[in-house]
Design a protein around this nucleic acid. Structure first.
Length: 268
DNA sequence: CGAGCATGGTGAC
DNA sequence: TCACCCTGCTCGA
């Protein structure tokens, strides 16, 4: 679930559900009980996101700083009894939001939030993002571009799905070192993310396949992917590339599964 | 029913 | 580079 679009969507939904309201904050699972009690029955101002970080602002300059990690979920549900391991529940009489399995869940000050954001690269989902900051680092880096776009200090919000898909859509060889990437390729990556990620926020899923490459348009049977979206290469190892038909390749890169098409992706 | 896996990140070596 | 953390789901015995 959680790449940048998930967190931005969550910020919108949480603000809509709780913004300007006094909320109940509890920790059914118990591990966050003390902090929950400190926020309980206070005003929820708004939720914002930067990259994969979520910040819920409460009255008196207090923030709930959440990072979902790989398996975390923060779901809006009816205010009925919780099930499973719920670290935090934020609720009104009408709505509830349950947080499970977060990598990070702490109460923070504004200064701490600012420090966190200062360590993050530009986020394609934020209007104030400056892509030049990312490019300056990428053009000097020796590491493969596939590692650089996932580095949250360089670019924030991109995860394993967006990395695979944006490199495919721009026909870029994922192993190309940053310092050998053309400026044109970088411009392509950034503008593509600026186009794709808001769609991800809107639809709450990642779809990257252009209309002319859908199975229907290509005269192939429709596919069903278990992650919910239509994608070119992510988790399609061994299957036929939707564009050229050659086998999608996979490899472990920096501890994560990388997927790409060796024939389509040759640009630098 | 257990093992393995997942759109992520940290800390130890 | 690796072990490990968090939770829930799927797949094979």
């Amino acid at each position: 679930m959680p790449e940048g679009h998930t967190l931005h969507r969550l910020a919108l939904d949480l603000t809509e559900a709780f913004g300007g309201r006094v909320v109940t904050v509890t920790s059914p699972q118990g591990r966050f009980a003390e902090s929950a009690a400190a926020l309980d029955q206070t005003l929820f101002i708004e939720a914002t996101a930067h990259g994969k970080h979520l910040f819920c602002e409460f009255d008196d300059d207090r923030f709930l700083h959440v990072h979902l990690g790989l398996i975390g979920k923060f779901q809006l549900v009816a205010p009925e009894p919780t099930w499973g391991e719920v670290r935090v529940r934020i609720a009104t009489r009408e709505r509830a939001a349950d947080l499970r399995g977060p990598q990070l869940c702490v109460v923070a000050t504004r200064a701490e939030i600012d420090a966190t954001m200062a360590g993050l690269g530009p986020d394609p989902l934020r209007p104030d993002a400056d892509p030049e900051l990312a490019w300056r680092r990428i053009r000097r880096a020796n590491r493969p571009i596939a590692a650089l776009v996932m580095d949250q200090t360089i670019l924030s919000g991109v995860g394993n799905v967006y990395r695979a898909e944006v490199l495919f859509r721009n026909r870029i060889n994922p192993h190309r070192p940053g310092n050998k990437l053309t400026r044109k390729s970088w411009t392509g990556i950034w503008s593509d993310l600026v186009e794709l990620m808001p769609q991800g926020v809107r639809d709450n899923r990642i779809d990257t396949v252009r209309p002319e490459h859908t199975p229907e348009a290509m005269g192939r049977p429709p596919r069903s992917d278990n992650h919910g979206g239509e994608v070119y290469v992510y988790r399609r190892a061994g299957m036929a590339c939707l564009v050229c038909g050659s086998k999608v390749r996979t490899e472990l890169l920096a501890g994560r599964n990388l997927f790409w098409c060796g024939r389509c992706q040759r640009r630098g």
